[in-house]
């Protein structure tokens, strides 16, 4: 992302809206500037700020007058008064940043918008996680910290070494050069994204081992981790297996996504047509 210095009036509104704090007012130029090393190309600034199309010279003059008189204009905080943001033409490997950070861009690997995962949200149709199995979503970088692929690599290697199988239809998996070893392609190691999710599925007997492994590895990684655990309920809609295991490990889940089982397969053949 770029900010046009000819348009920017240094109002500072954008410095607050950047999820990773990559926008600042450069004291030398007195213009908002993007730290491109930290910018994850999420487009929150470009898409989230409303835009006015005011004359920059007029706005700068007005701001100087207010400043001299020690007056504070109290404009809306989510507006770029001069529409100064200009998206860069992204090229590989930087395109990875946007794919993993801008929720409006679908992941090519899965066609799913957002983080590109389906977890147990369509489990009633896909049957991805069955009784006796546990589906894990191990998310890195959320909320508002971000993650480098080199950190993600550490976790992928550890999981692969433990013999787990990565979900094939997952954006992180699609960037692996070797799924068996969990090796992610080398050319994206120095790319930072807002968040990335590893998806795996294991028999319920191995769930505790995986959680303990995550506990060990997350200490070596310089970001936050959000664990999601998916389970198939029994015929009565109860989960007597995974919830007690989580309690035993000290977790008391406050929140969940609950698939209520109203979905059904309507297409005879698994023909990939459009993203979900």
């Amino acid at each position: 992302m770029k900010i046009d210095p000819n348009k920017c009036v240094a109002c500072g509104n954008c410095t607050y809206v950047c999820p990773v704090g990559a926008i600042y007012i450069d004291p030398a130029t007195r213009r908002a500037t993007v730290n491109s090393k930290e910018c994850v190309e999420c487009y929150a600034c470009y898409n989230g700020l409303s835009q006015e199309h005011l004359n920059p010279t007029f706005v700068r003059t007005l701001r100087k007058v207010f400043q001299m008189l020690r007056l504070r204009f109290d404009p809306e905080p989510d507006v770029c008064p001069t529409a100064a943001f200009a998206p860069d033409e992204l090229v590989w490997p930087r395109t990875v940043r946007r794919a993993f950070s801008d929720p409006r861009v679908p992941h090519e690997s899965t066609g799913v918008h957002g983080r590109g995962t389906e977890e147990v949200k369509t489990n009633d149709v896909s049957g991805r996680v069955k009784q006796g199995e546990v589906g894990f979503t191990i998310e890195f970088g959320r909320p508002g910290v971000g993650v480098w692929f080199r950190d993600l690599q550490t976790m992928c290697w550890a999981l692969a070494k433990a013999g787990v199988t990565f979900e094939k239809r997952n954006p992180v998996t699609s960037l692996m050069s070797d799924m068996a070893t969990g090796t992610i392609r080398e050319d994206i190691m120095n790319e930072k994204v807002l968040s990335a999710i590893i998806e795996i599925k294991v028999p319920v007997e191995r769930a505790e081992e995986i959680i303990r492994l995550v506990w060990d590895v997350e200490k070596q990684i310089d970001t936050v981790v959000a664990l999601g655990v998916g389970a198939r309920c029994d015929a009565d809609g109860e989960d007597h297996v995974v919830a007690p295991m989580l309690e035993k490990l000290g977790y008391h889940p406050e929140r969940a996504k609950t698939n209520i089982g109203l979905g059904r397969v309507t297409q005879a053949e698994a023909k990939i047509t459009v993203s979900a």
Binding site: P253, A256, I260
Partner: peptide, 19 residues
Amino acid sequence: IPRHSVGYSLGFEGKTEKL
């Protein structure tokens, strides 16, 4: 409706001092 599947959130871990 009986629940079909549940995805539990286990909250935030790791370098939570960054939050």
